[in-house]
Design a protein around this nucleic acid. Structure first.
Lengths: 159, 159
DNA sequence: TATTGTTATACTCTATAACTATA
DNA sequence: TATAGTTATAGAGTATAACAATA
C-alpha cells in the first residue's frame, strides 16, 4: 500500500502530492467499483452514463455524452447498447437531424439510478468522513485550480 | 469535460469533491500515460514498477512489489517478464528460500528510469503549477486524511 | 466535405482461480 | 498446510480507424 515510495528527486513536493492524489483516487475508486458490482451488478462507466442522463431529462446526444464522460464515441455506443437492452435507457430521434439520437433514462432507469445514487453518495460521504466541512471545501477549491491548469493545457496547441 | 455534472442530492459537497478528485486524477493520468507512451514507449505500471525498484537497490520480492503497487500478483509477473526481456530488470535468487526471487533494476534499467523520471517529474510539476507551495502542502495533508480513512476501512472486517 | 454515430479491432490493466514448487 | 510465484483466463475500459448515413 505504499505507492508513494515512488517519490525521489529534487521536486519531491509536487511528486509526492501527485502520488498521494493517485493513491487516494484509486482507493476510493476500487471500493466504489466493487460495491457497485456487488450490490447492483453494474460498473462505474454505466453508473456514470446514467448519472449524466439524470441531469438531462430531455436526453443527451452521443457526442455530448462522449465529451462529458471523457471517453471516445465507440465506448459510449457499447455502454448505451447494454443499457438499452436492459430497458434502463432509450434512444429517441432528434428532430431535424436524422444522423443523431438523444439517449434518455427510461422510468425504470430513473428509478434504478435513484437507488444506486443514494448508496453511492453514502459511500462517498464515508470516504471523506475524516474531513471537516471546511477541509472539504478547501480541497474542492484547490483541486479546481489543478483542473483549470490541465484543461487550459489540453486546449493549447501540442507542445 | 463536465463529469462533475454528476452531483445531485442532499450531500452535494462530498459528492462534488469526489467527482473533482476523479476528474483531476484522470486528466493528469491521461496526460502522463500518453507522454510516457510517446517519448519512452512505456506504460504507467511499468514506470511504477521501476520506480519501486529504484528505491530498493537490493531489489524487492514479487509479493512486496504486488503490495506496493496495489495490484494482484499475476499482473506483476507479466510486467516483470516484459522488463526482464528488455534487460531493464533481473530476477535474483533469495538465499534460504528457493521459492522466492528478488527483482532488481539492471544498470541499463537504472539509467533508463533516471531519464524517464526526470521528464515525468517535470510533467507533474507543470500539472501543479497553478498552486503555491503552501497549497501543495495543504492538499498533501488533507489527502493524507482521506488515505488514512480508506486504509483504515480496508483493514476492518467486511461490512 | 464535414459530422454523427457504429463497427471492428486491439491493447492495457486488472482480478480470480488453478497450479507448481518449496517451506 | 501454508506460502511464493506463475499461468490461464476473463472481463473492464479504452483508443484508433474504417465505415455508413446524413448534413
Amino acid at each position: 500500500m505504499d505507492m508513494e515510495a515512488r517519490a525521489h528527486s529534487e521536486h519531491p513536493e509536487a511528486l509526492r502530492l501527485w502520488l498521494r492524489l493517485l493513491t487516494c483516487t484509486q482507493l476510493v475508486e476500487k471500493q466504489l467499483r466493487s460495491r457497485l458490482r456487488e450490490r447492483f451488478d453494474t460498473t462505474l462507466p454505466r453508473f456514470d452514463l446514467m448519472a449524466q442522463l439524470e441531469r438531462a431529462p430531455e436526453g443527451l446526444k452521443m457526442n455530448e455524452l462522449s465529451r462529458r464522460m471523457m471517453v471516445t464515441g465507440g465506448n459510449v455506443t457499447g455502454i448505451t447498447d447494454q443499457l438499452v437492452q436492459e430497458g434502463l435507457v432509450d434512444r429517441v430521434d432528434v428532430e431535424g437531424d436524422r444522423r443523431a439520437y438523444r439517449v434518455r433514462l427510461t422510468a425504470r432507469g430513473r428509478k434504478q439510478f435513484h437507488d444506486m445514487a443514494q448508496q453511492h453518495e453514502q459511500w462517498v460521504v464515508e470516504a471523506f468522513g475524516g474531513l471537516s466541512e471546511k477541509d472539504v471545501s478547501t480541497l474542492h477549491r484547490l483541486l479546481g485550480r489543478v483542473k483549470e491548469t490541465m484543461v487550459a493545457r489540453s486546449q493549447e496547441p501540442a507542445a
